[in-house]
């Protein structure tokens, strides 16, 4: 399968602050690629360079075979950008917003294209209302619909779910997955490990200006830290008994004042084993929690391994 985006040694500094220190990655045609990183990691800078909005200080990048720096108009014809802040005109209707982009992209039958996209994004009822009456989720949908005008080959989504409530976030995940089924290549940025895991075919972690780890979600799972189960007890005696019992069963424990933590990779068998042992020994557990690794944990592990 061919690479539709190729990035090599991308560098960018703002004054003395080095944001990108040599970023390399490839995106395959028709796949969802997630650039994962915390706030200020340089994800948006990366997207801005690839979408021709910002000049890089060094390195090379091609999209659809076009040089991002030298053939920027050809690149612009192949891509579209949905930035972090909804790029919709508040005092125009949803339909007018779509038609404006269609006219600028010189799409023939722009009215038809607009209607089809409104339908696809479930905005037909609100099509002729001013955007300033739209909810946050509707605005986001319109924003992405505007990016789809003219069938770009690559879509850039910069933090598409930031600021959305959980329900709208799930709806957005569905929408992105459907776009990819249609064969469009998607590069999205996110701060959420779970979002990248859920959506992406390939994840690259951007940290301190370089890609510190990349691979499919399955590959990354192997190198990323495991989660934990946490057991809380009401009394210290119970906690001490539990510690003795579990250490005897050769579990590695992290011991806190009122609770203990056990590394868990999501295995149900392990959870069952721990709980069975505690129940059999009649040690009451006040509270049981399972925790996914946080992005910070992931970074620490990845950096530790280098």
């Amino acid at each position: 399968m061919e690479n539709i985006i190729e990035v090599k040694g991308l560098r960018k500094s703002f004054k003395k602050l080095e944001v990108l220190k040599g970023v390399d990655f490839q995106v395959r045609r028709g796949k969802i690629f997630a650039l994962l990183g915390s706030n200020g990691a340089g994800k948006t800078t990366c997207v801005k360079i690839l979408t021709t909005l910002t000049k890089a200080d060094g390195g090379a990048a091609t999209i659809c075979g076009y040089d991002v720096f030298k053939q920027s108009d050809d690149v612009r014809r192949s891509i579209s950008l949905t930035g972090q802040y909804a790029a919709v005109d508040e005092v125009m209707t949803g339909r007018e917003n779509l038609q404006l982009i269609a006219e600028l992209k010189k799409v023939s039958n722009f009215a038809g294209v607009a209607s089809a996209l409104l339908e696809q994004f479930n905005l037909t009822d609100a099509a002729d209302r001013l955007v300033n009456t739209y909810s946050g989720g509707m605005r986001r949908r319109l924003d992405i619909a505007m990016s789809l005008v003219g069938d770009p080959q690559v879509i850039f989504l910069d933090e598409p779910t930031t600021g959305l409530d959980p329900q709208n976030r799930l709806a957005m995940w569905d929408l992105i997955a459907k776009l990819a089924e249609g064969g469009t290549t998607i590069l999205l940025t996110t701060q959420y490990l779970e979002e990248a895991e859920y959506l992406a075919d390939h994840i690259a972690i951007l940290h301190n200006g370089v890609i510190t780890a990349e691979g499919s979600p399955e590959e990354l799972k192997k190198i990323l830290p495991v989660g934990e189960i946490q057991l809380e007890f009401l009394h210290t005696e119970e906690k001490d008994k539990a510690i003795a019992l579990l250490q005897a069963a050769s579990y590695t424990l992290k011991i806190h004042r009122k609770s203990i933590e056990i590394d868990n990779d999501g295995s149900v068998a392990q959870v069952a084993d721990v709980l069975n042992r505690l129940t059999a020994a009649q040690i009451p557990v006040a509270r049981f929690t399972q925790r996914q690794p946080s992005l910070e944990d992931a970074f620490l592990t990845v950096i530790g391994e280098r």
């Binding site: 950008l81 930035g83 909804a86 919709v88 982009i101």
Partner: peptide, 11 residues
């Protein structure tokens, strides 16, 4: 707003 970025990323 993000509007100018959208225009700028278009040909």
């Amino acid at each position: 707003t993000g509007i100018i970025d959208r225009f700028r990323s278009m040909a």
